[in-house]
Design a protein around this nucleic acid. Structure first.
Lengths: 148, 148
DNA sequence: CGGGATCCAGGCTGATACTG
DNA sequence: CAGTATCAGCCTGGATCCCG
């Protein structure tokens, strides 16, 4: 078994999964699974995008609002709050008039960039294949021979 | 600038973001962003878990249902369908009675394991810090001095 | 400027029951 | 066994108005 970098992704995941099989019947207890917890966060509509936008430098609330465009202030606030709550983003208020607030990544937030970048690069690269697969799937209803 | 492996995650993300800034006013057009597209998929409640469970070997519908435990057949079917539609998972029907169906990762699906594993490992490792940050945040309502 | 509060529509999701 | 169908609740997220 030649391991490329460190180990096979399938094995890494397999081990982690085992680690989560803590419920009585051997099932996976959603509540006690840290991964679900984190995934739910990155799964929300905006978190990853915000994190990504803050990757290079701090940004002000209105700047984020402007760049994203189709996010409401409500959701921007909410997203930033939960990121702040999770310790990924730091909020700084400058007591000027009118008030100025900026957001920057914490060390923890920055540490998320690497795995996130991996995923995003994968998404970017696989996008075409996925689109093709979707079209193929949608095109024919369900008439392919699955097994002879 | 010493680049560790290949380049700084912040730079990778920065470049990708630029790539998505295709809307007229310089904002990010959600619709044309492949990353949002993919992230929405992995963001759903079960996809990543299913992908992870299929990492090692194919599994039958009922096996998946049993392992996950708290997923309804409805959602399992739906999740598997969308994964199949995206070309990440392959469905095989054996025309026996009663019918038997199994699911396995495609090459594309397997290619997703690596970035996914990165993210999951990060989630697993950061879980404690995040929990602590949350408690700290929740504990005190909002009385920390932000800037003198 | 940077939010908080409220109202409301829509989609996601689970529970249940039925089918081939 | 492997789904499909239907119904109902919840939560997300947008729109709007208001405040410091």
């Amino acid at each position: 078994m030649t391991r490329e970098h460190q180990s096979n992704p399938a094995d890494v995941l397999g081990d982690l999964i085992k680690h989560f099989e803590t419920s009585p019947e051997g099932g996976i207890d959603t509540a006690s699974c840290p991964v679900r917890d984190v995934l739910d966060r990155i799964g929300d509509k905006w978190s990853v995008l915000i994190l990504t936008l803050l990757a290079r430098e701090p940004k002000r609330f209105s700047a984020l609002n402007r760049v994203v465009g189709d996010i409401s202030k409500r959701m921007l606030t909410q997203t930033l709050r939960s990121l702040q709550r999770d310790g990924l983003v730091e909020r700084t208020v400058y007591p000027t008039t009118p008030p100025m607030v900026d957001y920057r990544l914490t060390d923890l937030g920055r540490s998320a960039l690497e795995p996130l970048a991996g995923l995003i690069v994968w998404a970017d690269r696989s996008h075409d294949q996925i689109r093709q697969a979707r079209e193929a799937f949608d095109h024919k209803g369900e008439d392919m021979p699955l097994v002879s």
